[in-house]
Amino acid sequence: MHREALVIDGVSFHSRLFMGTGGAPSLYGLAEALIASGTELTTVAMRRHDSASAGSLFGLVSDLGVRVLPNTAGCFTAREAVLTAELARDALETDWIKLEVIADDQTLLPDALELLDAAEQLVSRGFVVFAYTNDDPALAVRLERLGVAAVMPLGAPIGTGLGILNPHNIALIVERSGVPVVLDAGIGTASDAALAMELGCDAVLLATAVTRAQDPPRMANAFRHAVIAGRLAAEAGRIPRRGRARASSAMDGRPDL
C-alpha cells in the first residue's frame, strides 16, 4: 500500500493520527492507547510541577519514542500563550507549539484576535506554530500568511464529540491552504476522523474521543484505521453524488422471463 508521509518542519509522519494525552484516568491506560493508536505525535499541557507525580508523563512519552507537541491550553491572552510557549520550549526542548488561545471557558472556542497576535509573536520568536483555530476559512488564511506551520481547525468545540459541524468550511480551508490542515477537536468516533480525511485534511488530532471511550485502546485502534481509510478514500476519488439511481448491472442480455 502506497502512503505518502506527512512532512511538517522537515519531520515525516507516517501516521496521520495525532493523539493528545488529555483525559486519560491513568498513565498506564494512556500508554496502551498511545501504542494502539500508532501515533507519532502527542500533545501535552504545561502545568505546575507536582512532586507527587513528578516527571512521569514526560518519561512515558520519551520512552514510547513519540514526539511531543506542547500546547498553550488554558491561555486566554496572547501574552499568556507566548509565555507558556517559551516555558514549554525551555522545559521540553522543542520549538513546536500547539497554539491555543481560548475566548472563554464555556465554549473553549479560539479567540481570533488573541490567536493572530500570539501566532505573529511566536513565529517571529522562531517557534513552529500549530494553530488551533475556528472552522473559519478567512482566519485560516490569515494564520498561514503569518507563517504558521499548520492550521488546525476545530470540527466542534473541545470535548463535545459532536463531530464535524461544518464540513463545507473544513473543505474550503483545505482547498485554499498551502500548509498542512489538521482537524482538531470535536471528534467523537471513528467515522468523524474518516470524514476529516475524506474532506482532504492532512491529519487528525484527538484526545478525549479515545481517552474517555469505554475501551480506549480499542477506540485508538479504530481511529488508526479510520484515518487510513479516510485518506485512501480521498486519494481514490469518490463517485459524484447523483439525484437518481444508476444501475450497476447492464440491461443488455437480460432474459425474457
Binding site: T21, G22, V44, D50, L57, V61
Partner: peptide
C-alpha cells in the same frame, strides 16, 4: 515574576523576598 528564567541561568539567578516563582512541567492535555 511572569518572566522565563532559562535553564542555563537557573544557577546564577537569585530568588528574592516576595518573588512569585512557577515551576512547570508537562501534564496531560489535548
Amino acid at each position: 515574576n511572569s518572566e522565563v528564567v532559562p535553564r542555563s541561568r537557573w544557577v546564577d539567578t537569585a530568588v528574592a523576598n516576595g518573588d512569585s516563582v512557577e515551576i512547570l512541567g508537562a501534564a496531560q492535555g489535548g
